[in-house]
């Protein structure tokens, strides 16, 4: 319990730090007033708009006002959408969560069998080809992979949808469970290409990780003992080897989420995915400080919560870890 409280306090510091950095960074980049007046605005109008946006006050005052409102859950109105920034962020969040979770699932579900298969067939062409793909997967930029998939799987073979998004979490949150689940197959279908584009790097890395820890475990005494006892190979792999081999993968899940989240900006652009990455990118370009702040705080919260959960789970699985 003390652990959780300590972590929450630390998180608070982290969030304040994150907002301060984004605030200063965006402020330093110049006066955004010009983005929010018309082409023929007069000097008087510009001054008025600047005051209306609050950019005429001293920096520390702006920041304190911002923090004061933040505590009440108010990030202010988006400068470009003219509506609450938090709303805009929360609307874009589900799509990104869908994409990231799906990619994370791929990064585990696809990577582990590949890694195990490579380890069990060590030195054979199976191992060779899996590792070659895995190596290549770590050297292809995701936007490139995305565009290639659109060209071949989407356009040439007409196998997968080229771009777009069918919501699942959004209707779920709104309480429309029936709609959510009736849309689930479609939602997954639209997730495949962007999901792979986001996850390919991680799949490759995890497959290699599983392979090497598998090889390590397979060489250990208890596995040899199990084999000697005549337990079937499948049982050895699943019951003994795999259980230990995937620990390094679990360790990485917390970090993995943040890593995958970093990859979504580009992939959301390529696949027209209406997520938070594109929102932030546009907001940064528009100097829409309320939206950037809201998005950054929400992401940090998601990230911190996830790490906390991973730590707790990890402590459960591996008794050696003390919190």
């Amino acid at each position: 319990m003390t652990f959780i409280i300590r972590r929450l306090l630390q998180s608070l510091v982290v969030i304040i730090g994150v907002t301060l950095i984004t605030f200063l960074a965006l402020q330093m980049s110049g006066d955004p007033t010009y983005l929010y007046v018309s082409e023929r605005a007069t000097e008087e109008e510009i001054i008025q708009t600047r005051a209306a946006l609050g950019f005429d006050r001293p920096l520390h005052e702006q920041y304190l006002t911002f923090i004061g409102k933040l505590v009440q859950g108010d990030f202010g109105n988006s400068l470009s959408y003219k509506r609450p920034a938090l709303g805009a962020v929360l609307e874009a969040l589900p799509a990104t969560i869908e994409l990231t979770l799906f990619a994370m699932m791929l990064a585990i579900v696809v990577a582990i069998p590949l890694g195990v298969a490579a380890a069990l067939n060590r030195g054979t062409p199976v191992d060779g080809s899996i590792m070659t793909v895995a190596m290549a997967g770590q050297s292809i930029p995701s936007f490139w992979l995305g565009i290639m998939m659109i060209m071949f799987l989407g356009l040439q073979m007409r196998f997968l949808p080229i771009s777009g998004h069918v919501p699942f979490i959004m209707p779920l949150v709104q309480g429309d469970v029936v709609r959510a689940f009736s849309q689930l197959p479609q939602a997954l279908y639209y997730l495949i290409m962007p999901g792979f584009a986001v996850a390919f790097y991680s799949i490759s890395r995890n497959a290699r990780l599983v392979r090497s820890s598998m090889l390590e475990v397979l060489g250990q005494d208890y596995v040899r003992t199990a084999r000697a006892k005549g337990i079937s190979e499948t049982a050895v792999v699943i019951r003994h080897a795999l259980r230990n081999a995937w620990l390094p993968v679990v360790t990485m899940i917390g970090l993995e989420f943040g890593f995958l989240l970093g990859g979504v900006v580009v992939v959301e652009m390529v696949f027209s995915w209406p997520g938070i990455g594109r929102l932030i990118f546009n907001a940064i370009n528009q100097r829409d400080i309320p939206v950037v702040q809201a998005a950054v705080v929400i992401l940090a919260l998601v990230f911190i919560t996830l790490n906390l959960i991973v730590d707790l789970i990890y402590a459960k699985i591996d008794p050696r870890v003390k919190l």
Partner: peptide, 18 residues
Amino acid sequence: FRIIPEASTRTAELIAGN
């Protein structure tokens, strides 16, 4: 009105007939 920021993706969607 579908929002498709990347030009290549827009073209691909047009050619695919979507």
